[in-house]
Amino acid sequence: MGAVRPWHGAVSLWHRLDVAARDLALGLLFLVASVLPGFRDNGTTIGDVATRPLDTLGVVAVALECLSLALRRRSPALCLALVSFGFSLDQLCGYHTFAGTALAIALLSAGAHLRRNRHTTAVLFSVAYVPLAVALSRIGRGGEPTSGFVTFYLMLAFAWGIGAWLHATRAAEAERRRRVADDTRAAERTRIARELHDIVTHHVTAMVVQAEAARYLTAAPERLDDTLDAITDTGRQAITDLRQRLDLLEPSHGPGRATVQGAEPRTPAIGGLRTLVEQTRRAGQPVEFTEEGTPAVSPGSADLVAYRVVQEALTNALKYDHGGLTTVRVRHTDEEITVDIATDGTGSRAPSPCGGGRGLAGLHTRVDGLGGDFDAGACTGGGYAVRARIPVGGAA
């Protein structure tokens, strides 16, 4: 273990270095190899130009080919130009050093990291290769056939092609990650919008109905006080729920603070249905509530979705069948939660904010996302019914 830690430390230090410094190390490796006697006769040779010993100009050519690799990722076009110039000196003067291999590295790097003018760069390089090949064929000893120049060009094109493939692969992966991030953000915005819709619609509808009823209770002070207390309680609950949802948008004021202060969890438990029903009754809506079975130990998102189904249905009952009897039946099993809500159609339309069906559409999407069934529609004898079967254990 003691030997592993220094190794990891060295790797970490290497990755913290500037990219040019790391690429320079590759260039220095080629430079050292180019001056070693063992690599003297293993350099790149094209054009059959007579080999001559390394001199000052040869050192310049080797330095251009090797040290320019420090720019292969930061400035790939400049790197390719410098390495190509050094390679031309290397071949035309007959040095034939190992540093000529750097041309393939520069081409691969340009294909992989060049972002603009990629096609222009490839064309310019190809055009520049033609006069080099012509010059080498003229000053050479005539042992290099035309097919040799073509083959060497194809090898260089292959190096560029590998780099282009790496570029396309990275671009595709970056695009995939961007789409995933966009989809994730869109899904989160949609989820928060649904939560806010459920909270605001339910509480504001109850407050509007209660406030409207208070107009007719001036002759009964006790009942008026109860109604005003109900409005106050509903408003406070709405503020609490909104704060919990807005904490999702501002995490620094969210989970940590709520945990310290012992606040209620963000997700309403299925046990909160009785409180929800009682709030609706206080708003003047008669509700018969029946709950059967025992909630599953790990319901996943099913309990939240069931809560929202009941909440949306009771909100619609307050809006469109105010005063009519509303029945709520919730049945728990180990596999699913079944919710049935229906109004009898004997009530009146309350003077409350109108909706556009967004709540029911959102519930349909949520239930479908858990693999359940959702249905909402008018009853034959009047009224409206909402039915949902929600498998437990899923995540919305």
Rank of each mutant, 00 (worst) to 15 (best):
G393R: 09
A122N: 03
H96N: 13
V59E: 02
G140Y: 12
G2D: 13
R189T: 13
A342I: 05
R274G: 09
D303Y: 06
V35S: 01
L124M: 15
C93V: 10
A164E: 15
R329N: 08
L224F: 14
R191A: 15
A25H: 04
T227G: 00
W165T: 08
T184G: 08
A361N: 12
R358Q: 12
L64K: 02
R16M: 12
L80C: 07
P145K: 04
G393S: 10
N316S: 10
A110D: 06
A296S: 12
L154K: 00
H113A: 05
L156T: 00
I199D: 08
A106I: 02
A385K: 14
L82C: 15
T315P: 00
W165C: 04
T97R: 05
Q210A: 08
G142S: 14
F149M: 06
D321Y: 15
T267M: 11
M207Q: 09
Q91W: 01
K319M: 10
Y216S: 13
V260E: 10
V60M: 07
I341R: 05
T201M: 13
A350K: 04
I162A: 03
M155R: 14
A395I: 14
R223G: 00
G235M: 11
G161S: 14
A25D: 02
A172C: 02
R281C: 06
G371E: 04
D226S: 14
L314G: 05
A106H: 02
T218Y: 11
T343G: 04
R138H: 13
A172Q: 15
Q311A: 04
A106S: 13
H96M: 07
R185S: 10
I199A: 09
R194C: 04
T327R: 11
P268T: 05
Q261A: 07
L24M: 07
A81S: 08
R189Y: 09
G382A: 08
R118E: 13
T151G: 09
G300Y: 03
R177D: 14
A206G: 14
E312Q: 15
V11F: 04
M1T: 11
L156M: 15
L89Q: 07
I192D: 03
R52L: 14
V386S: 01
T240N: 12
A220N: 11
A269W: 02
H96W: 10
V150K: 10
H8S: 07
L89P: 05
G235C: 11
V150I: 15
Y216I: 01
G148A: 14
G262H: 07
L156R: 15
A50Q: 07
D375W: 08
G2F: 12
L154V: 12
V83P: 04
G163C: 03
P6H: 06
G284A: 08
T275V: 14
G359F: 09
E291M: 13
R40S: 12
G355E: 07
S126C: 10
H119Q: 12
T365G: 06
P76Q: 03
A269E: 08
D229E: 12
A21M: 09
I390Q: 06
T294Y: 01
L246G: 03
G94M: 06
L114H: 00
F149G: 05
C66A: 09
W7N: 00
V297S: 11
A3C: 04
A128N: 01
Q311N: 04
P221S: 11
R243F: 05
I105A: 00
R74M: 02
G100S: 12
V59D: 03
I46T: 09
I239P: 00
